[in-house]
Design a protein around this nucleic acid. Structure first.
Lengths: 343, 343
DNA sequence: GTTAGCACTCAGGGGCAATGAGTGCTAACC
DNA sequence: GGTTAGCACTCATTGCCCCTGAGTGCTAAC
């Protein structure tokens, strides 16, 4: 793949991303200064098609990039788009004006990303179960029930009503809490060692109370599942993209977007990989093989927190999406640090 | 409006709901046994159009019901559809299989409703601020912060990290909690009387501590805002309705559905009115004046809890939607009672 | 190796007629 | 007087044809 082929590929990808129309040799010759005639470009394009970087709907339509073509473009040809200071200022302003409570951060982040990129934004909120046990405490509710409050290092707090076994007093529960605290402090919630359970067993002699303790722990952990909430925004923005003029395709993508569990899986799969682009066919899930996803993971004090992503047609402004995610990343870590995340 | 006109109107509405095509006199004569010829039906239809119950796209197309026509149908002509025992069993089964945690109830309810009605389902989860203060307690976090846990009668539990003013000890905070509990017990969160605040003021002499107490209360209440979460399901189901073959219309409705705040307002507006149908033009919001909403409020022990709704094109199976909502209503009250709602 | 020229392809759009569902009106019927 | 058959008329939809224009692929000349 010589220099000139690369320049042609770059031209095709850029023009196609901009216009959403198959691009022809003539257009490229006119709009890019390659110093050769359309005929030459035609030859190059034919070669690029042979090599799998470009595609053809039918004879006599222009070329569009294949997944492989986009991949080459993203990896090598694309010039990194930087957000302008003005754009950054606008984002900061929006954030400041809109986000009053921590719960709003994620929804607003999604909204902002979708607004800027005109694509769907996905934000996976911090995962409670990845953070470390800090302490468990009980509050009395009535004579049959009490409230278990679980706190973790990342600042998550989770509560759950638990029934007290008949005969057990609130004091028993508080004693139980002390035992659990001793044994679990520092454990990551999704990886509590067997030894910890054994230790708790050995310290709580009463059978009923031990059962209750296990119940409390498992239910507290259970709850954390639902907490890695997914925020989604910009369905409508994306539908204004020309690729979604067809109702069938719209339905297809909406079907996909309603599968929250599936989306979470996809984001989880990319967790911890920094900034990453997955293009078209590279996606494992068939429903989005004509889409691309840009994901980024945000951290707090070195601790993995969550993922933000842009999902849109393969014809996407990759550079822009990537730099935006990078910027939002910092922002998000920052806001979470500042306001403190409480689950 | 004589008997026969009503039967014709009924026939038109039913056929149109079923077929989504404008219905003509001939079709009605064939499919409904009115005992008169198409010509007679034509005359009746012309009259019904005069009276505003039917509409015409252009000469020589069949009639479709107007909002007024649907209203008359819903209020008087519609025969109440009952869910079959089989359907009920299926719903029960789905519920049992899917709902493991209380948080899932609402999402699954939305999913189920949309699945059955092929329309968008909206579920407004219980409103914390409408329930009554039960107690406030503190848990120690570290030497500068503690966790405030607020519980209400409906079983909501809400927690918040609060900074302790320098000089204040955790014991001070516990004393403060006792005062607040004494003063606020039984107050509905969104209507705390001025007198209660005065009482707190008189019992807490320390200025800093009083400030902190107000802060705790206001922030606890603040949080409750975000808690009346809206669950939404079935966008895709609705889009398979023939009225949404047009991409423009799809975008319009999606724009609407992304405005969570607006949807909440709409549901709030119908709160406490039992089972209610709002048809087409009757909607205050322009964006959905070609849609209908069926809403129902669910209760627990006489206490208002939330709203569930079906949103779809005016051509909707009203009877079915209504009986389904009625059934889900019971179910929801029941599940919330059984599992206990924790916010 | 590059380019001009030319034949060929194919989607999209406009024009046009045929089709068919449906109305509205009038005159005949019971 | 209400009901109905008959008929002219309307209009959206469909299929068809043709044209246009953008674009390719090939060949021969530069």
């Amino acid at each position: 793949m010589d220099e000139r082929k690369q320049r042609v590929l770059q031209a095709v990808v850029q023009d196609y991303i901009e216009s959403a129309e198959p691009v022809g040799s003539r257009t490229i010759a006119r709009r890019h200064d390659l110093g050769v005639s359309p005929a030459t470009i035609r030859n190059e394009m034919a070669d690029l098609e042979m090599l799998g970087y470009l595609e053809h709907i039918h004879t006599s339509s222009g070329r569009i990039p294949s997944s492989k073509g986009y991949r080459f473009y993203v990896d090598g040809l694309m010039q990194p788009t930087r957000l302008t200071e003005e754009e950054k200022a606008q984002i900061d302003h929006w954030y400041r004006a809109r986000v009053k409570r921590i719960e709003e951060v994620f929804q607003e982040t999604a909204r902002l990303i979708s607004h800027v990129t005109k694509n769907v934004a996905l934000v996976l909120a911090p995962q409670m179960k990845k953070s470390a046990f800090r302490c468990l405490q009980f509050l009395p509710l009535d004579d049959r029930r009490s409230v278990a409050v679980l706190m973790t290092d990342a600042g998550f707090i989770e509560n759950r009503i638990v029934a007290m076994p008949s005969g057990a007093t609130f004091e028993d529960f508080q004693r139980m809490a002390r035992v659990i605290n001793d044994c679990l402090t520092g454990c990551t919630l999704d990886a509590i060692p067997k030894a910890a359970y054994r230790k708790i067993r050995s310290e709580i002699s009463d059978e009923n109370l031990y059962e209750a303790a296990l119940d409390v722990i498992s239910r507290a952990l259970d709850d954390t599942e639902g907490r890695d909430r997914l925020y989604l925004g910009g369905t409508r923005e994306m539908l204004s993209q020309p690729e979604f003029q067809d109702v069938e395709r719209v339905k297809e993508i909406l079907l996909m977007l309603e599968e929250e569990q599936l989306l979470k899986e996809i984001l989880h799969a990319h967790l911890g990989e920094g900034l990453r682009v997955t293009i078209g066919r590279e996606n494992d899930y068939k429903g989005i093989q004509d889409c691309s996803i840009v994901t980024a993971t945000y951290h707090l004090d070195g601790e993995l927190l969550g993922t933000i992503a842009v999902l849109g047609p393969t014809r996407m402004e990759y550079g822009r999406a990537m730099s935006l995610l990078g910027y939002m990343n910092e922002h998000l870590s920052d806001v979470v640090r500042r306001l403190g995340w409480q689950g």
